[in-house]
Design a protein around this nucleic acid. Structure first.
Lengths: 236, 236
DNA sequence: CGGACCCTTGAGCACGATCAATGTACGTGG
DNA sequence: CCACGTACATTGATCGTGCTCAAGGGTCCG
C-alpha cells in the first residue's frame, strides 16, 4: 500500500506537518514513512536511547514523561492527533514516550526526516512555529507546577480539557453545562499536575460539592459553572 | 557605525545565531539590527504586549518571567550572552523579559527578522535546533519544579551554575574546590526554583554545615564536595 | 549616620503527601 | 452466573516539608 494512498485517507492530513506538502512531495515522503500501531501502555521511545525515529500522531493520546533516578515521574507533555513527536538534530531522546490509549503513528527514521526538512522549507518553517508553541506551553506549565495550589491546578486542567473536547466535538455551547470524558486516569492527571492521586480526587469531590462540576461516573465530567471554575483556576 | 563593524567586534560573534552568516549576509543584517543597552531591573518586553522585537543577548543576564493574575512569579528561563530571545511567528509575547544585570542587546524588528530567516537557511536551521534545546530544558525543569525537594533543587541549581561558570572561566579543575559568584540574588534563585527566599537560604546554610559548600560572602559559593552535592541533587 | 537592599534565623502553621482502608467497575475463568 | 482478580477511585487519619510571619544582622551608598 503506497503511502500516498495512506496519506489520502490520513485522519490528520490537513492538520499535521505534512499538510504543507503537495502530492508530489507526499510521494517522496512515502518512501521513508510507515504506519505503526501501539497498544495502550506501550512505549514509543525511551529516555536516554538514541533518537532514531520521529513522526506524527494519527490517533490516540501519548504522554511525554520525565523521571528522576529514584522513580518519581512527571508528565511534561501530552500529544494529541496531528501532533509531531521526536527531537530532530538531537543525539538522544530526553523523555520517554508512552501511549495512554491505543494509538496510531506515522513514523520516519530521524536522519531521513532531517533531510526532508532541508528539502521542504514550508515544513521546516511549520515545525519551527510548532516548536515555539510547545516551548511557550511548557513554560506556562512551569508557572502552574511551581506556583499554583492544588485547587487552581485541577480547575485549570478541567478548563483545558473542556476546551480541547469542545474543539473536537464542537457542541458549540459556549456557556451552560458541558459534559465530556477525560482521556486520563486520576493517576495520570496527578502526573500532569505534579500532585498525588489522592489530592486530585479530593479536589474533584470538593468542586462537585461546591456545584462547580458534576461527576456522572467513569471518566465523565460536567462543567456546571464555568465562571466559578475559571475563578478557582486563578484565585490564590 | 555600520553593523558590520559592530559585528566584527561582537562579543558573541561566533556563538550567536548570526555566527552562521558570512560577511555579505552580515551586511544585510546590518540594515535591520541595532544595539541597545538596558539597565539592571529594566524590562525588555512585557507579557501580553505585541511581539515587535527579537534579538541576541550580547552581555549580561536576562530573566523570562511568567506571573499569575495575583502576582505570584516564576522565572521560566534565564538568558545568557549569545542566547536568542523573542518569539518569531507569534502575535504576542507570553512572558516578560527583564534584565537581571546591566545588559547589552542586538535587536531586530520581528517582521524583518522573520524575512531574514527565510533568506538565510542555516540561521533558520540553527534557530530550530536551539528552540528544541530550550524545549528540552524547559521540560526538564518541569520535573525539577514539580517533583524535587528543596534540597535537591538547590543542589542541582548550584551544580548548573558551577558548570556555567566553569565553561566561561574554564579553570579546568574538574574536582577539587571551585569558587564562583552566583549571578542571582537569593530571591531570584527562589523564583527560578519555585520556592521562597527563606527556604533557599536555609538549604544553603545546611549545605555549608554539611561541608558540601562554602559561602565566603557576597554572592560567592565554593563547591567543596562535588560528589556529595551531586548525590544530594538526586537523593529523595 | 541613616536608609535601602539583601541575607539569615526562628517559631508556628497549613497544604498536600503519605499510609491505610474501603468502594466500584470490569474482565476472566471456574 | 457468580467468584475472583485487577485496576481505578474515594475517603479518612496522620505527618512533614516548606510557606508565612517576624525579627535581626550585614553591606553598600548617599
Amino acid at each position: 500500500m503506497a503511502l500516498t494512498e495512506i496519506c489520502a485517507d490520513c485522519a490528520v492530513r490537513d492538520r499535521a506537518l505534512c499538510g504543507s506538502l503537495d502530492n508530489g512531495e507526499l510521494a517522496a515522503l512515502n518512501t521513508i514513512g510507515q504506519r505503526r500501531h501501539v497498544a495502550r501502555g506501550q512505549a514509543v521511545a525511551w529516555a536516554g536511547d538514541e533518537a532514531v525515529i520521529c513522526g506524527n500522531l494519527l490517533s490516540g493520546v501519548l504522554k511525554l514523561v520525565a523521571a528522576t533516578a529514584d522513580g518519581r515521574e512527571q508528565i511534561v507533555g501530552l500529544l494529541y492527533p496531528a501532533d509531531f513527536f521526536g527531537t530532530p538534530f538531537s543525539g538522544q531522546t530526553d523523555f520517554t514516550i508512552v501511549a495512554l490509549t491505543d494509538a496510531e503513528l506515522c513514523i520516519f527514521p530521524r536522519a531521513a526526516f532531517e533531510r526532508m526538512l532541508a528539502d521542504y522549507r514550508r515544513m521546516e518553517r511549520l515545525l519551527l512555529q510548532r516548536t515555539f508553541e510547545s516551548l511557550n506551553e511548557a513554560r506556562g506549565r512551569m508557572l502552574v507546577l511551581a506556583r499554583k495550589s492544588a485547587g487552581e491546578k485541577v480547575a485549570g486542567f478541567l478548563l483545558d480539557m473542556a476546551a480541547r473536547a469542545g474543539e473536537a466535538g464542537c457542541h458549540s455551547s459556549p456557556d451552560g453545562p458541558v459534559t465530556f470524558d477525560l482521556p486520563l486516569t486520576r493517576g495520570q492527571i496527578a502526573d500532569v499536575l505534579g500532585m498525588t492521586i489522592e489530592t486530585v480526587s479530593r479536589q474533584l469531590t470538593r468542586m462537585k460539592m461546591s456545584g462547580l462540576i458534576g461527576l456522572p461516573g467513569g471518566r465523565a465530567v460536567t462543567i456546571s459553572d464555568r465562571e466559578a471554575l475559571a475563578a478557582r483556576a486563578e484565585a490564590a
